[in-house]
Design a protein around this nucleic acid. Structure first.
Length: 199
DNA sequence: ATATTGATGCCA
DNA sequence: GGCATCAATATT
């Protein structure tokens, strides 16, 4: 992994759209699953009321304040794991939520994790589906993605044909900030749902 | 539309 | 300690 001129230390809303077309691979004893990202959201930490880090550092969001290129995993609604890539400078909380992707390797392994009747396009369609398909859980919180030393690897795959931007999903505050980015027209992008509180 | 599910954070 | 909140999904 090259440095790309401080790419990872840039603000999350700059890194987020550039991550589309990258892939995240998880290698386990069962094999490898690789997901090419098709949908992400940027979260900016203390300046962003929608961010977990809005109120400063806590035990849960600790890794958001850490070095870029690590995984921040949290439990959503008491049942789903969601994964973020930490970006920005150390000490500044910012992260990119991985919302959806296309399984490009290990489709059958991913299907065994998601259920035998799951259609290909739905294997990693939605943030919790994506972590399920990859087999990511709390044990991966804080895992390094760029060193090539652990089971998880984030790498450049291919540039998407076109990228769209819009408001983030399910966010009640700052609902007008267009920090959701997705590959235009891709069938693996999750259905848009505005927050019920967004007015 | 609604049930599910549990860690977290804030107030006491 | 107790209670409201939550970057969601699956099912009706």
């Amino acid at each position: 992994m090259t440095d790309l001129g401080g790419f990872w230390s840039k603000p999350s809303e700059v890194v987020a759209p550039a991550l589309l077309g990258w892939s995240l691979t998880h290698v386990t004893a069962d094999g490898a699953v690789r997901v090419r990202l098709t949908e992400v959201e940027a979260y900016a930490g203390e300046a962003d009321p929608a961010s977990h880090a809005f109120r400063g550092t806590t035990r849960r969001n600790d890794v958001m304040f850490g070095a870029a290129g690590h995984l921040y995993v949290y439990l959503s609604y008491g049942m789903h794991w969601c994964a973020n890539v930490v970006v920005g400078r150390e000490g500044v909380a910012s992260a990119v939520l991985l919302r959806a992707g296309r399984v490009v390797e290990g489709v059958e392994l991913a299907r065994s994790r998601r259920g035998a009747r799951t259609a290909d396009r739905s294997l990693a369609r939605g943030p919790a589906c994506l972590t399920q398909a990859l087999g990511i859980g709390r044990e991966h919180d804080g895992a390094a993605l760029l060193g090539g030393t652990g089971p998880l690897t984030l790498e450049y795959d291919e540039r998407p044909p076109a990228v769209s931007a819009g408001p983030r999903v399910g966010v009640s505050r700052a609902a007008g900030v267009p920090w959701r980015f997705w590959v235009t027209g891709d069938e693996t992008v999750s259905a848009y749902k505005r927050s019920p509180r967004a007015g």
